[in-house]
Amino acid sequence: MIAYLEGKILCKAADGIILLAGHIGYEILVDTITLSVCMEKFQANETIGLYVYYHVTERQPKPVLIGFLTPDDKEFFQLFITVAAIGPMKAIKALTKPIPQVARAIEDRDTAFLSQLTGIGKRTAEKIVATLNGKVLAFAAAQRPESDTASTTPRDAVPEEKQVMVRQVTEVLTEQLGHSASSAKRMIKQAFEKNPGISSPEDLFDEIYQETR
């Protein structure tokens, strides 16, 4: 299964791009925001990497590749398509707003905002909230006011003297507790943002579980 592709963009395609990777051109569907980033890379003749969701079913035997700029974007998408009546094709067309904004609307039960997404009516917006409310807070946390940017902790930044502790906790979260690497990073980051004084793995676990309760 294809999970990641890196290369240069040959051209824009219907609802996406054709990416040249290893002398093979892959047609990849992307949301409108990702497409704008891809086109900037295309104009600059730069390489781009995309995390890929591979979609094929009995109803749709032709494989479809859907691309994302980050693992978190792909992870949100995989949650999004668990909503009844939202399949991968509908979902990628619906993501016309930044994912943190969509996640925040879900957590705020803002069906009016969700109804603005392409192909999402009021009833579907209500289904999205009913299915995902309480599950996407970590994605919504990525949205911050621009004026607050300078004072926030970078996504993966952890004090150097605590890196060993963080690696230990990350291993437990991913290898023993079944969290994805991106989820583990988010939980650890949020814990340090709430309590910068964490000084032991036990303290870090306590803060993480407080965050997820």
Rank of each mutant, 00 (worst) to 15 (best):
A112N: 15
A84N: 12
N45D: 08
I28V: 15
I198T: 10
K189S: 13
S200V: 07
Q60F: 09
L50N: 02
H55R: 07
I120F: 06
V64Y: 02
L20W: 01
I99R: 03
R144D: 05
T57K: 14
V102M: 02
R186W: 07
I24G: 01
V172P: 01
T111R: 14
A13D: 04
E202F: 12
A91W: 01
E160Y: 15
T82N: 11
K41A: 14
Y53I: 04
L137W: 03
T118P: 02
E160C: 10
S180C: 06
L114N: 02
I128S: 05
A184L: 09
A141G: 05
A105H: 09
A91N: 13
F42S: 11
C11M: 13
P201F: 01
G178S: 06
A138H: 08
T47I: 02
H179N: 13
K194N: 07
R104I: 03
G7T: 00
V129C: 07
R59G: 10
D148T: 13
Y209F: 14
T118R: 15
L65D: 04
T57R: 15
E207A: 09
G178W: 02
H179R: 14
Q210L: 13
D72H: 06
E146A: 08
P196I: 11
V164L: 15
S200N: 09
V129K: 06
T70D: 05
I128V: 15
G87N: 11
K127L: 12
I208V: 04
